[in-house]
C-alpha cells in the first residue's frame, strides 16, 4: 500500500437543518483511502452512505472537518475547482444510471470529455473504446431506453472511466439490477480494480461487499467498523 493516501478525511460532519432541528447525516468521520484500494461502504438505510459518497466525490461539501484529495485541501476550493476535480479525478456510477435519455450511448460517454475540452473526434474514439471495454461495442448508437438495465449501467461505468479518473465512486450500482446482471457489473468493477483503479462502492448486500478488499460499515453517520475483507471473494473471482 502507498504511503500517501488518495483521500484523507478527518472529523468530517454533515449537518442538515430541518425545521430548526439539526439532522446529522455524518458525524466525525475520519478515513484514509489509498490508491488501488477496493472499498465497500455498507450500512442501513439513512446511515449516511450516499452523503459520504457525495462529499468524497466533491459534489457536496462537509459542514465541518478536513478533506484533502491527492494532498489538496478541498475545503479551500471554489465551485469551479470542484467541478474540475469531478471532471478529471472522479468517476461516478449511480444506482439509477443517470444517463441522458435523449443521447446515444456514445454521446452519453462523451459528456465528461466535452467539459474537459477534448476535441470531437478524440471524444468519439475514446467513448467507443471504453464502450468496447465494458463489452458494449455493439450498442454505440442505442439510446438508454433501447438498452437493458445491465447495459445502461455498463454505459454509466464506461462514462465514469472515459476520463481515466483517480477514483471510481459507485453508489449502489447493482441496486436496480437483478442478481445475475448485478454479478456481471460487479465483475466489471473487480476487473477495473485488478487493472489498478481505485474503487469505492456503496452496497446493502453482503454478497456484493464480498468482492471488495476492505469493508467500512457506517451507522448513524459514524464509522462502525473498518476492516479488511476476510471472505476474499475477489481472489476467487479471478477464475
Amino acid at each position: 500500500m502507498n504511503d500517501n493516501p488518495l483521500i484523507h478525511i478527518q472529523n468530517i460532519s454533515k449537518v442538515y437543518e430541518m425545521g430548526g432541528e439539526q439532522v446529522f447525516a455524518l458525524r466525525d468521520i475520519s478515513l484514509d483511502i489509498y490508491p488501488n484500494e477496493y472499498v465497500a461502504l455498507m450500512g442501513p438505510s439513512g446511515s449516511g452512505k450516499s452523503t459520504l459518497m457525495n462529499v468524497l466525490g466533491c459534489l457536496d461539501t462537509p459542514s465541518t472537518g478536513i478533506y484533502t484529495f491527492k494532498g489538496l485541501d478541498v475545503n479551500e476550493m471554489s465551485d469551479n475547482d470542484l467541478a474540475e476535480i469531478r471532471n478529471r479525478e472522479i468517476g461516478f456510477v449511480f444506482q439509477t444510471f443517470n444517463l441522458l435519455p435523449r443521447a446515444t450511448a456514445v454521446k452519453n460517454i462523451e459528456l465528461p470529455l466535452i467539459y474537459s475540452g477534448v476535441s470531437s473526434s478524440e471524444r468519439k474514439s475514446r467513448a467507443i473504446k471504453v464502450l468496447q471495454d465494458v463489452g458494449l461495442g455493439e450498442r454505440l448508437t442505442h439510446k438508454p431506453n433501447e438498452l437493458s438495465g445491465g447495459q445502461r449501467q455498463r454505459v454509466a461505468v464506461a462514462r465514469a472511466l472515459v476520463t481515466n479518473p483517480s477514483i471510481i465512486l459507485a453508489d449502489e450500482p447493482t441496486g436496480n439490477l437483478d442478481t445475475k446482471t448485478g454479478i456481471e457489473i460487479m465483475k466489471l468493477f473487480r476487473d477495473l480494480w485488478l487493472k489498478g483503479n481505485t474503487v469505492i462502492l456503496v452496497t446493502h448486500e453482503e454478497d456484493v461487499a464480498r468482492y471488495a478488499q476492505r469493508i467500512i460499515r457506517i451507522r448513524d453517520g459514524k464509522v462502525e467498523s473498518d476492516e479488511k475483507n476476510t471472505v476474499s471473494q475477489y481472489s476467487q473471482g479471478t477464475e
Partner: peptide, 15 residues
Amino acid sequence: KEIGIRKSLGAKSSS
C-alpha cells in the same frame, strides 16, 4: 436532473 448529471460529470456553472 440533467443539470445535476452534467454537474456531477464536471460541468461548471458557467457551462
